[in-house]
Design a binder for these strands. Structure first.
Length: 233
DNA sequence: GCGACAG
DNA sequence: ATCTTGTCGC
């Protein structure tokens, strides 16, 4: 693993007014730890994570569900409630949701081969979206599937399921892809997080999309945390 | 200075 | 993320 230490992270999260400059420094260091190649064998388990917010309690509810791949049969689901101590700032989403996801991941008795996160991986202004951030800190293969664009330019992909176009950074680098997961619906934004390449991420995203726009892992994790939230109200 | 801006 | 009614399509 790289040289990222939790003390720096914990210190950062404690900052009352968000210390954006320190977050940027952290992302710069984290970027050097990202492995952009596929480093896992046969894909047998995938997991999806999502967050919902308990505004009154100032807490985040995180849920993670592990599925067998490619049949998408649920294997395990866990959740946790964590204090909300960082605001939502575009480009710094991982500092808000990352701690909850990391804590919840630790509760899994079955670890997935790939973790799918709601949001971007390398398709980020500094190349370190939440999928990279969480993937590196947990040292687990991770990828991001976002419902909308954060960074990068692209051409609209074809309208048929499976069609995709590259997401390009300002410097001309291919940082992700815009993928049509369902015919004639808004495409999703796929990008590598850690220990995976774009081609593998695209294949996984498409295989997990069972006729719906949002791939099963994150889609079901979303309904899971929504139910947990409802039950707490 | 003026937009853009994951969840 | 969250708020929030009806409504269009399979």
């Amino acid at each position: 693993m790289g040289s990222i230490d939790y003390d720096t992270l914990a210190e950062l999260y404690r900052g009352k007014p968000p210390e954006v400059r320190k977050a940027f420094d952290f992302q710069r260091r984290l970027k050097g730890c990202i492995i952009g190649e596929r480093s896992f064998g046969e894909l047998k388990k995938v997991a999806g994570a999502d967050i919902s917010i308990l505004k009154s309690e100032k807490k985040l509810i995180c849920g993670i569900i592990v599925f067998s791949y490619p049949d998408m049969t649920e294997i395990e689901r866990v959740y946790s409630e964590v204090d909300e101590n960082f605001p939502y700032i575009p480009g710094l989403l991982a500092f808000r949701e990352g701690p909850a996801i990391i804590e919840t991941y630790g509760k899994l008795s079955v670890k997935p081969d790939v973790l799918i996160l709601d949001g971007q991986g390398t398709a980020h202004p500094r190349g370190v979206g939440i999928a990279c951030h969480v993937g590196v800190l947990l040292d687990v293969p991770a990828m991001g599937i976002g419902k909308s664009r954060l960074y990068g330019s692209f051409e609209e992909p074809g309208t048929e399921k499976g069609a995709w176009t590259p997401l390009t950074s300002r410097e001309g680098e291919r940082i992700g892809a815009v993928l049509r997961t369902k015919d004639r619906t808004k495409p999703v934004f796929v990008s590598p997080g850690h220990r995976i390449d774009l081609e593998s991420a695209l294949e996984i995203a498409l295989t997990c999309s069972r006729g719906l726009r949002i791939p099963e892992p994150t889609r079901l994790a979303d309904t899971y945390v929504a139910e947990l939230k409802k039950g707490r109200k």
